[in-house]
Design a protein around this nucleic acid. Structure first.
Lengths: 213, 213
DNA sequence: ATTTGTGAACCAATTCACAGCG
DNA sequence: CGCTGTGAATTGGTTCACAAAT
């Protein structure tokens, strides 16, 4: 087992592997090889093995990886078991969609708060999740020990919202706005600009480059 | 100017730069340095200059880049001017949200078709965009010369939908489902799993905890 | 007989450092 | 001078190839 720092692309792929394992488990498949995983992810099998080696040796040389064993290893190493309190900032269409997203609910992320600067929305949106005005972000994040924040606000509100999350002690931010949030000490950020992705695909296709993710 | 193939990270950053330039133009800023761009994007200024050098020399050594000049250069090289016919497959919450997204409408991607396997949805959703049943994807993509397809379908429908797009001659696919679409000859793919992104941030923040000194 | 785990080799991308130009 | 553009150096990531394991 390697003990160096795990590269970001490896973390991304490990998360994808985890996702595949969930499906295999539902299918009652109990073993899978690096080649098979690679095929499903569109990735070289060597890469799969190297990625998995970052979290320890667990393969069975005869029959590949035990699905349940590998999955629980991933859960342990990536701390995917710990239910992590999560909140959504911005309850426009995207935010409201995420608020009630089944997969998100099932996936170990407990969404325990929603925020919006528009009080009307807080009062009218139908959901079991408690909703608060945006100026309470820092306070609620602190009080409820929220670890992950999802930004679904208009771009001009993104930086301010992120600051409030950070002030509350957030650990990770997924930013779905088109603004760019820069990571600060101890806070991981993923900037995921949906419209931006379309532009990127468009540009790539014009340059005639066949690429994934 | 370099003439080698443009690396994917560079294309991504050039698209981000383009986005910043749009804002600067609105602000009536007419020049910007690599240092300033780098600051806004959270990227090293050297990297910005190298990225821009992939699309040709255009900088003004005294006062940085001319906003309008750089922008039109990007438009030309990344073919962002050509209105590219775009369609959305899957008119659930996410798909319906994208269908009426203003920024998407403004951004040079003409959404000219929506598809869903549920005929009810096609008849009830309010939009100016023409909607069709999913089994007409290939035909309509061909007929309307649609270049970009956005997948907002449930994961189990993603691969089949992508096949239909490819059969129609699509050039690029942005896949917002959790399934993985692999690129085929002449077709670029971006897999953007929204829930997956949250898992990645979570995993990163957990690993950071252990590695930060 | 397969399939993993990993050092070594290779390749890609980022950063550095400085020449060149207004 | 300040800022760009770019070879060179460096860092980081992927692929290869083979030993170890069962």
């Amino acid at each position: 087992m390697m003990t160096t720092k795990i590269p970001t692309p490896t973390i991304e792929r490990l998360c994808s592997i985890y996702h595949i394992l969930e499906q295999l488990e539902e299918n009652k498949t109990d073993a899978v090889s690096s080649v098979e995983l690679g095929k499903q992810l569109g990735i070289n099998a060597n890469s799969i093995r190297k990625d998995i080696s970052f979290i320890g040796d667990i393969g069975n040389c005869r029959a590949g990886y035990s699905v349940s064993k590998l999955k629980s290893h991933l859960i342990e190493k990536l701390k995917l078991n710990r239910k992590k309190a999560t909140c959504i900032i911005g309850l426009g269409k995207l935010g409201a969609t995420l608020l009630n997203n089944e997969r998100l609910l099932e996936s170990g992320f407990g969404i325990i708060a929603g925020f919006d600067s528009n009080i009307n929305k807080i009062e009218t949106i139908q959901t079991k999740v408690p909703l608060y005005p945006a100026n309470e972000i820092t306070m609620i994040v602190k009080r409820e020990k929220i670890e992950i924040g999802i930004l679904a606000v208009p771009p001009q509100a993104a930086v301010e919202s992120a600051k409030r999350l950070v002030a509350g002690g957030i650990r990770g931010i997924v930013n779905f706005s088109s603004a760019i949030i820069k990571p600060t000490q101890g806070v991981c950020v993923r900037n995921v600009d949906l419209v931006g992705e379309i532009r990127i695909v468009s540009a790539m296709s014009m340059i005639l480059k066949e690429t994934v993710s």
